[in-house]
Design a protein around this nucleic acid. Structure first.
Lengths: 343, 343
DNA sequence: ACCATTAAGACAAACGTTTGTGCAAAACTT
DNA sequence: AAGTTTTGCACAAACGTTTGTCTTAATGGT
């Protein structure tokens, strides 16, 4: 049985009769160390299977090489693929991710932030919970002086870097598409308007209607949590209208799915009688029948951009008050649920 | 602007004219510290907004309070809900999770393990990638002396704690159910038999057939990756048989979904002509139509048990070579895809 | 051959805790 | 009242790095 003790920088120093500081510098390619000793140090390090102690270096340097992530649910294709790409990019630079879930709860989000700050993360990347309307906790992050990047669910009020798609434009694209398919009475199952992205989708929806000369009717715009159940409830409500809509645009795929279920239960043909469009391009949209048209948010791209932005910030010693808001163009994936015209 | 410096244990000591060690002990409720000073210390700590420096304590004590998680994909309902419950339980004890994904790649899994070990995690909880057949990396964890718990995809060869369901029994339940529905020619879209859980499902399938006096036919047993595409391919193959099966049992929900798609494209009625059962109870199984029957693996329970087992190990100073394998009873959720008899 | 540079590394302090030991005073013994 | 135990804390080292400053030897210029 070998000795359990891990080899440290000191052990290497002893072997070569130099000091630990020289070893440390050699391993970091410090210019003041000769190439000869650098090579020697690295060889011994390899021979002794030296593994740097992150905790020690973190303590001394103040950098933990850990990045905190906060999302609503990892269990969503959008979030998990964004995170996957962040992880890929940041791993390359030696960072590890601590992933936490807020479960859409403001309280849990606060606790997560505290936990992450305690773990001395070098930065935090987050997408806000639906409940979140108070940003004191995020200011705590800024006060700590570590970078904070928001994506998808962001907020303009706290001056902070952001990466997401153009929600206003998304609605525009959806409405354009539906009008093109001949729809004239387009309903919108919306998210709560206190969340910025949903507010923008609503604005985009309204403006697009106006642009096409369609009247904006109260009864066709319903706010909710966008869960499956919510989608079902909202669709049921819409079916009670004296004049039915000929299209439904849901601000979330799960809500769209709920709506689809209700439509099918009422034997309403999709898209012939009512066309349907969702949002986020969750995988199931292409699996159900009819497949659901949806807005693709460039998940991979968002992940990469967030990572890039984080690296920029974390390497930026002199605090630059320049904000970076990166807005991507959304893309509508047209599927059967909204394809009335056979092209 | 307040001074940026975080308050340390020393600051508290200075305020009260005691030593840092006394403060540390007071905060940890050491018996050798009087209640009076304990209260005083805690008060000052609160007043000064003292946040313990985890890195420092980790360095000194050797415990980082971080736990590494390795799963194939966070983006799967089963994994994400297991992890959610692990997180919930371990957070209560002051642990934070570092979640990594292997993406079913052996290589990535090894890199993840190395990264986690470098970050000085106090333990690792993992579910093996499909590719993994070599366990040297897991032995590295054991050599380090930190606990390792496997769940779902485990392996008997490395002596290690495990939590999962009884896969053999699962197949039994499925076949019993299908036979009950009147099926006599049951196909199995299986996972690769080099993975233990899939091997057991195959064994269970074969034995159950035997038990019911049904012949075991080569052409009805097809191994694959269990992706949607794989499910489609395997179902297409099955449809080429001269005598069609009257039931298909897929060892994964995605494969079941792929099979369902193919069946519907061929206008084969499910379950009337061919019944279908999946595995894992992914949410979409209840969303598609017909809804897919599936095996529920007690996600929440697994998470809780894994956490419990981890805590047991991590607090166990004297290495106990007693292995804990926890096996849960699977539960078949019967839905439309296999309900031939109207009950 | 003398002074000025530069190169290569030594030295030591520091990061914020935890922890074993030491030591005085207080509290029990008898 | 003297001895013994207990209580409450001080002292200092240690965890493994990183980093600012100092020292010495080598190099260069004239």
């Amino acid at each position: 049985m070998k000795n359990k003790r891990k080899t440290t920088i000191k052990d290497i120093a002893n072997v070569l009769n130099i000091t630990p500081s020289a070893v440390s510098r050699a391993l970091h390619n410090h210019p003041r160390i000769s190439d000869k000793t650098k090579i020697a140090v690295k060889k011994v390090a390899k021979d002794l299977d030296y593994q740097p102690n992150h905790l020690a270096s973190a303590l001394r340097s103040g950098k933990s090489k850990l990045v905190g992530i906060i999302v609503a649910k990892t269990n969503s294709y959008f979030f998990s693929s964004v995170v996957e790409n962040i992880e890929y990019e940041l791993n390359k630079k030696g960072y590890n991710l601590i992933i936490t879930q807020s479960n859409e709860s403001f309280d849990k989000e606060c606790r997560n932030i505290d936990a992450l700050l305690q773990t001395q993360v070098d930065g935090i990347i987050a997408s806000l919970a639906n409940e979140t309307v108070n940003f004191d906790h995020y200011n705590k992050i800024k006060e700590k002086g570590i970078p904070l990047i928001l994506f998808d669910r962001g907020e303009n009020d706290i001056g902070v870097d952001y990466v997401g798609i153009d929600d206003y434009q998304s609605s525009n694209i959806v409405v354009n598409h539906l009008v093109e398919q001949g729809c004239k009475r387009i309903a919108h199952i919306a998210g709560y308007s206190h969340t910025r992205i949903y507010k923008n989708r609503i604005r985009g929806y309204k403006d697009a209607l106006k642009k096409h000369g369609l009247p904006e009717e109260e009864e066709l715009l319903l706010e909710g949590s966008l869960s499956i159940e919510d989608g079902r409830a909202k669709m049921t409500e819409l079916l009670k209208l004296s004049i039915l809509p000929d299209a439904v645009y849901a601000a979330g795929d799960y809500a769209a799915l709920g709506a689809l279920q209700v439509l099918q239960e009422h034997n309403i043909k999709v898209p012939e009688q009512i066309a349907l469009v969702g949002f986020s391009n969750e995988p199931f949209t292409s699996l159900v029948s009819p497949s659901i048209s949806s807005i693709y948010q460039h998940n991979k791209e968002i992940g990469k951009l967030v990572a890039k932005q984080f690296l920029l910030r974390v390497n930026d010693k002199n605090y630059k008050p320049v904000l970076h808001k990166t807005i991507l163009e959304p893309e509508l994936i047209i599927r059967d649920s909204s394809r009335k015209l056979k092209s």
